[in-house]
Amino acid sequence: MKPASFEYRAPEQLDELLELLADDFTDVRVIAGGQSLVPMMNFRLSTPELLLDLRRVDELGALEHRPDGALSVGATVTQARLLRQLEQQGGWPVLAEGIRHIGHPQIRSRGTVCGSLAHHDPTAELPALAVALDARMTVAGPQGRRTVAAADFFTTYYETVLEPGELLAEVVFPAWPAARGWGFRELARRRGDFALVGAVATVDRDAAGATAEAVALVLFGVGERPVRLGGVEQALAGKPLDAAALASVEPLVAEAIDPVDDLHASADYRREIAVQLSVGALADAWERSSARV
């Protein structure tokens, strides 16, 4: 359980880093927190020739509120740092709750937000949160920068739209309306484990507060990537999320997902739980939401 030989560079300039990353003749991986990459290297499942450490590039460590109310999180911002910021300054409570489910404090103090997104374990919390919150991913590469919607970023297990030579430079979470309600439900074998199944929901009520104007529901641990349940969202829009409304979407959840068996749980079980967690997360989100101001 020792990694194969590799070269290690830690440039201070982003240009230099991107140049090294774009070398077509070298198998390059970037590292920041290393919480997934290092074990994979120790198992020799990943054998990069060059390991590029992002942590000396100052601009990748930015964590800032933008004028439009969005929150941008740079590539080397750790999960613990983002959580601390959210807890101290408020906003995006669902993001804070989701991050608390990632591993343990030791893991979150090393693991980065963008690292988890780029790694894309489909049972992880952050990819689902990014999709549910309509996050925008800033991708830096040899041709400059491009922005990818979170909904389009994740392709399949451990794969994203990132091309060789590209880096997830930041993730931007749009402004969080104070009246928005949220729900985060996760079932794991142990506290801190990757999810068997998880559900993220948000609800924005109308100005009267009587019905849901907009609903988001994203599940994780039920397929090759986070699954946004557009059918459920549409079915609930314009309604109050009462027990009858929630019960009516249960079959939609079950039909929309295609989970798989593994050692920890069967596909049938995951489907069953996905329905329960979806209903629970939506109910929480409805409960926590208030009339749009």
Binding site: E250, A254, A265, S266, Y269, R271, E272, I273, V275
Partner: peptide
């Protein structure tokens, strides 16, 4: 006794076990 196995035991026992999610969950099960 993993959660999945306990659910399977409940199903094998013939009862839904009062699953709180309601009719949808039972149908899926």
């Amino acid at each position: 006794l993993t959660p999945d196995r306990v659910r399977a035991l409940i199903r094998a026992g013939g009862g839904d076990g009062g699953a709180t999610a309601g009719a949808g969950a039972t149908e899926v099960a």
